[in-house]
Design a protein around this nucleic acid. Structure first.
Lengths: 126, 126
DNA sequence: CCTTGACCTGGAGCGCGCTCCAGGTTGCAC
DNA sequence: GTGCAACCTGGAGCGCGCTCCAGGTCAAGG
């Protein structure tokens, strides 16, 4: 099973090297293996986790919850807690989506109104 | 035509008093009238603008663009520019919505997978 | 070997968008 | 006219999520 350098992990996950180190310091991504010389060695598993962490971040989960999730992932008796945490997050994502859609409509109405206004004015000056 | 105190404007717009002042300093919301004693007096027009600014913020428009929009609103020959700015923003909102929906699906799949995992485990220990 | 680039650590710094504070003025209610 | 809440200004501070830096170590190619 092949492994990955920090640069590869960054590339694959879309996080910067600094962010990867930061997440490790913060206990979000635990126990990344090290080479003899102390360099990080990422497993495919690590990459999978990172990919999902990216999904969580992209959906607006704050660092604090990321940390909680990361810690739950180290205890394998924590499945129900992980499910609960993700369900709660999913609910907030759903809510944000709805709000965003509503505001999008409002924005589009305004644009439509502006366009009409523009035509009125255009007609007036013609 | 009635007017509004700062507190009322804050209440109506959902911005804090400090944020209202900040927006004025930053040239986002211009020329709020003052009473004899120097207190701000918001018009219905101001409230309308504030409402729309809130829409823009809620859809993620950065302060810098808010400022641009606010300044365009002071020149009434700027309709096309305002339309262009809002259309560009609308496009980015659309993109974010799509990304968010995609990540939401990913999140939901993960939750579904966790639920199955949980049932498997539950069955195993029963 | 030696070079060169990727990587290491601890800690400081930053950009955004507010938010809070001190010290003072205004204005309505009694 | 007095008390008290709401408001004013300029400027400092903050929380988040990274990002950058100095000064050093590691590892692979020639």
């Amino acid at each position: 099973m092949r492994t990955y350098t920090p640069a590869e992990a960054a590339q694959a996950s879309g996080f910067s090297l600094d962010t990867l180190r930061y997440y490790e310091r913060e206990g979000i991504l635990n126990a990344v293996a090290r080479s003899a010389g102390g360099h990080r060695v990422y497993t495919e598993d690590n990459l999978g986790t990172l990919g999902f962490l990216r999904c969580l971040r992209d959906t607006g989960m704050p660092i604090e919850l990321l940390r909680r999730y990361g810690q739950l992932c180290t205890e394998d008796s924590s499945l129900p807690d992980r499910i609960a945490l993700l369900e709660e997050h999913a609910a907030s994502v759903q809510q944000r989506l709805e709000e965003l859609r509503a505001q999008q409509e409002r924005l589009n109405s305004k644009i439509a109104w502006y366009r009409e206004e523009f035509e009125r004015q255009d007609a007036g000056t013609a």
